[in-house]
Structures are given as structure tokens and as C-alpha cells.
Design a protein around this nucleic acid. Structure first.
Lengths: 197, 197
DNA sequence: CAACATCTGTTGTTTACGCAACAAGTGCTG
DNA sequence: CAGCACTTGTTGCGTAAACAACAGATGTTG
């Protein structure tokens, strides 16, 4: 992602950071449903009314945080203006895998907490949004097909990875990518850009 | 020190912390006279106009920071309401020694920078202020003698310690205290409280 | 020395945030 | 179920900080 268009007031930037950091700390101490907005703001040292100037509720805070962390990881691994091609799909698969593993990899098998469910959902939705952008940039899909194709593509990546991650199978991100790419190409190769980047 | 009487607005507390932390970082990178208020506020992420809402200039910031750090160390080592007695003088000597050593102990012998000079001055002045408070609490000194006695007492502690520290002699805080206490008692024993605490 | 770049100290205005309070909602307990 | 403690979402007001701009001061350079 390029430089933000409008510079945010440093105070607002800071406040959001405090709130997000507080949420992260509290999630390490108790379950999501046990955490109140009061807890978050007290931990962050921010007035509770200020919380509502930035987020609708604690779900909004969590979802936003997850999306931003995921997007930061994508920004690190992918080119600045990715198109829908094999190389970028590979990088995306690896990123999704590593991101999910980072969250789920620390739980006992079969245990799915509400925060993990929420987190997984955010990753899927955001992955779809990203793919939609890629497809639009490539111009290989008709406008009315964008939603369908991006949804299918995201689930082809997301579904198998979620299953592998939740079942705690010992596989590497590269292995997963090598297994998924041929299948994705078989189904969506028609929309793929032939060139690099 | 007991709980502050009026709760400071958390925003102001934070801003001061940022500024003080920025000063500390910059002092590790360049000399005091090379540091501008602009540098400090940029590092702290605080608007320059805000700096002047809290401090008169960069000297004020440095002096205040030194005094607060020193006072924090004193608060850790001394009882809540110290009186002018042998035990507390001993603790004070140890604290002064350790505080000065913490700043000066990392320089080459004979090298006295302007920040160290400023820092030493703050310690002497603050030590005198503290001793004045002790004497006043003990009631063993007439009002018109408070300044003189507290000044003498502070220099009897401060002077020898500064010399030892600057000359880089390898002595412990306890050793210095054992050497200074008899001399201080000989000179100021008449004002000392006999009891503990 | 004049010109210039940089910094300082200040000012008025705008913006984000702190605070106290309130009504309503939620969960727990006897 | 009623009572209670706690939380939520919101509001109006006051406060601290951000911002842009200005005049003056300071240090450097040709």
C-alpha cells in the first residue's frame, strides 16, 4: 500500500494504536467475550467516550485490527500493485497460511474460540476484497462477474488452509501453495494474467 | 512521595513523557548543545508549540527530567517522611553516589560534558532542597538557619562524591557512606534526630 | 558584511480527547 | 422475579494539543 492520502492527526493515530495494543494484551489474558470496552479503554489509558469516536464497538476494534495486521503482512510480501497471476496467487496463499497459523497455531486441536472465528472471517472477507482489486486491475473479468470470481478464488485459497491449520497438520506454506496452485489454475486460469507482477 | 494531590490530565502526562524520553534518546546520539527543540519535538511526535506549554526551553526539560529521575530514586530508597538522622543521611549518600555514577560512570576520566555539569548542578540543588525539608520537619533548626545548614549538609555529601566519581576511583557506595558519615555527624550532629525514620 | 537557512518563541484557531452525567441494557444473585 | 452492579452508548462542555503563520534571533557561508 502506498502512502496514505491524507495525513491523520497524530493524536488520532496514537489513540487507535493504544486501543489496538490494549486489545491485543487483553486477548492474551482472557477470552474475547470476557473483555469489555471499559477494560480496553482503561488498559489503553483512553477515555471511554473516545473509544466510540474511533470504533463502533469491540467487534469493530477487533475486526479492524485483524484486517490491518493482515494487510501489513500482505504489503510486506506482495508487489505494490499486484495483478491476478500465478506468482501473486502463490504469495497470497503463503501469506494467508502464515497469518492463520500465527493465530491458530497456539491452540489445542479442535478448539475454536470466538476470536479465532472472527479472525478467520475477517481474513476471508479481506482476501476476497483484495482479489477483487486484482481482477479489476487485470481487466480480465467482466464487471458483473467480479464478485463471483473473487469469491470463488478466495474460498479456494482460504478453505483448504483453514482446514489444514485447524487440524494441526504439519505442512509448510510452500507445500500448501504447490498443492493449491494447480487446482486454482485449472479453475481460474482463464482470468490469470500471463506476465509477471 | 505520596499520591499526587491533583490528578493530571492523562494527555499532559503522556506528552511530558514523550518529550523526556525523546531527550534521553537524543542525548545518547549527540551532545546537548547540538540538540534543538525542533529535534526533540520531532522525535517525540509532539507539536513544537506544545513543548512550550510544558517547558520553558530545552534546559528546563533537561533539568526537570534529571530532578524527577533523582527524586524517583530517592522515593525508592528512603522512607515516606524522612527526618534528619543518621540512617537517612546514609541512604541519601548512597543514592547521590549511585545516581551520579549512573550518569558519569560512562565517560572517560577528566571529561566533563555540559550535560553532566548541568546534571550535577541539579542534583546538588535538589539535594539541598530535600535536606531543607528534612530539617524543617525535625524542628531542630531555627527558621533563619535552614538555608545555611541545608546548604552545608548538601555540599558535605555532594562535594566528596562528585570528586570520587569524576576521578573514577573504584569505591562502593557503602564505603563512601561509612567515610562521610562520621564527618557529617561531627559537624551537624547537633541537628540530627536521635530516633529512627 | 549581506544573504540565507534554520531555529525560537509566540499567537489565534481548530481539532481530538477527557470528563461527568444520564438513560437504557445486560447479567448475576437471593 | 426484583434488585442490584456493571456496562453501554451518548451528550454537552471544558481542556490539551495540533496547526499555520509570523517576527525575531542565531549561525553559517561566500
Amino acid at each position: 500500500m502506498l502512502e496514505k492520502e491524507a495525513r491523520l492527526d497524530p493524536r488520532a493515530v496514537r489513540t487507535r494504536q493504544y486501543l489496538q495494543q490494549a486489545m491485543g494484551e487483553l486477548l492474551g489474558e482472557k477470552r474475547f467475550h470476557e473483555i469489555s470496552v471499559q477494560d480496553i479503554t482503561a488498559r489503553a489509558g483512553v477515555n471511554r467516550a473516545t473509544f466510540y469516536a474511533h470504533f463502533v464497538d469491540k467487534y469493530d476494534l477487533l475486526n479492524t485490527s485483524i484486517r490491518e495486521m493482515y494487510q501489513n503482512m500482505l504489503d510486506e510480501k506482495l508487489p505494490a500493485q499486484p495483478v491476478f497471476n500465478r506468482a501473486n496467487m502463490r504469495l497470497l496463499i503463503i501469506t494467508v497460511f502464515e497469518f492463520l497459523e500465527g493465530f491458530i497455531g497456539h491452540c489445542s486441536p479442535g478448539s475454536i474460540s470466538s476470536e479465532q472465528g472472527l479472525m478467520a472471517q475477517q481474513v476471508q472477507v479481506h482476501t476476497q476484497t483484495i482479489l477483487r482489486g486484482w481482477l479489476e486491475r487485470s481487466g480480465a473479468v467482466a464487471q458483473h462477474e467480479l464478485e463471483a470470481v473473487s469469491s470463488i478464488a478466495s474460498w479456494m485459497i482460504f478453505g483448504p488452509i483453514v482446514q489444514v491449520t485447524w487440524e494441526r497438520k504439519k505442512v509448510s506454506a510452500d507445500t500448501v501453495a504447490e498443492q493449491l496452485l494447480p487446482l486454482i489454475e485449472a479453475g481460474l486460469g482463464a482470468y490469470m494474467h500471463a506476465g509477471a507482477t
